[in-house]
């Protein structure tokens, strides 16, 4: 990683927020739902940022913003230092491409594999049909598919093969950044490892930058160089993969790590000590959003939102680490029952 440290970030999010208005019931008052709340991320070329969090934490919304499928309510997204506005989706498309979770829904069943993979080239009028054909053959080779699949249809392929097609489509325009949204969670174990290996090889070969969204922390630990933990629209901790998995700070990160079920016989199921359910994002808890589930919550956690505290390799948002705010950190808060 040392060789990339000097370059400017390839992808940068500056205070990005996305607020939806949600109507509850027919006559309910519309309420704001802060899907993403003031998030800043900076990614250098060749890095893999693992984004983890429970469903509803905003990771998919973040992916949509990066792909230009949603506009941020506030803040800006920069690619190579350039601000990406809402208008130039086509420029963004050449730099950022997605790989989706479900290879059964991400390929149009009515189109041949050749049509699916060459679509980006045709949309952006890159080359004539001859060079496009050549490019498709090349990329098939790169993702490890035989050329004879060109004239087949998605329904004729296995899940792993389909995911390779999706990867081929994402890479054919040579993007700099690939957003991988749970790319292996719909695949069988033996196929998952093939796809993870492929993603790793491609990153090394093309110096790609990944945003890797996953709920599987073991996979994130394996593939990522940096990890960001999201909770209710905020990134509560961000660090290098070593910094996070070896010496994690935030109680939520610790709970997530505890919940990973490694295949070790006899260890039993861990107690995450998280207690109650994930809160409703329309009515997030006051103060630190995590305090009702936090085993280490203190009195002022319920009232004062925590600030981002810099750590050696990133930041963490937790009062436990904020030594300068003058609060008494010694009073534990009584937790609500389960």
């Amino acid at each position: 990683m040392s060789n990339t440290d000097t370059t400017q970030p390839v992808l940068e999010l500056r205070s990005v927020s996305k607020t939806y208005t949600v109507k509850q019931g027919m006559f309910g008052k519309p309420k704001p739902l802060k899907a993403i709340n003031d998030v800043s991320i900076s990614l250098k070329r060749g890095e893999v940022l693992g984004l983890v969090g429970e469903s509803g934490c905003g990771k998919s919304t973040l992916a949509k913003i990066l792909l230009g499928l949603e506009e941020p309510t506030k803040g800006e997204v920069r690619v190579d230092g350039e601000v990406i506005g809402a208008t130039d989706r086509r420029t963004l498309a050449r730099r950022i491409q997605p790989i989706f979770q479900d290879p059964y829904s991400s390929l149009n069943p009515r189109k041949s594999i050749e049509d699916i993979i060459s679509l980006p080239l045709r949309v952006h009028s890159i080359g004539d049909s001859n060079t496009q054909d050549k490019a498709v053959r090349e990329i098939l080779d790169i993702v490890g598919l035989p050329q004879r699949v060109m004239r087949t249809y998605p329904s004729q392929m296995s899940g792993g093969q389909r995911q390779r097609v999706a990867i081929a489509r994402a890479l054919i325009m040579k993007p700099e950044i690939v957003i991988c949204d749970e790319p292996t969670s719909a695949l069988d174990v033996s196929v998952q490892s093939q796809i993870l290996n492929l993603l790793n090889d491609l990153r090394a070969e093309f110096n790609l930058t990944y945003l890797f969204i996953s709920h599987d922390l073991a996979v994130v630990e394996h593939l990522a160089t940096r990890v960001a933990v999201m909770y209710l629209g905020r990134i509560v901790e961000e660090s290098s993969v070593g910094g996070l998995f070896d010496t994690s700070g935030h109680p939520y990160t610790q709970a997530l790590l505890k919940s990973v079920l490694t295949p070790e016989a006899g260890k039993g199921v861990p107690d995450t000590e998280l207690g109650m359910e994930y809160p409703n994002p329309i009515a997030p808890p006051s103060g630190c959003h995590f305090h009702p589930r936090c085993p280490m919550a203190m009195t002022h956690c319920a009232t004062v939102p925590p600030r981002p505290v810099p750590t050696p390799e990133g930041h963490v948002e937790c009062h436990l680490f904020d030594t300068e705010n003058g609060h008494d950190t010694g009073t534990p808060l009584m937790r609500e029952g389960v």
Partner: peptide, 14 residues
């Protein structure tokens, strides 16, 4: 096939 935290080397081939 599965990455095992603590056992599998990070980023290594599975």
């Amino acid at each position: 096939c599965i990455p095992q935290p603590g056992k599998t080397e990070r980023g290594a081939r599975l």
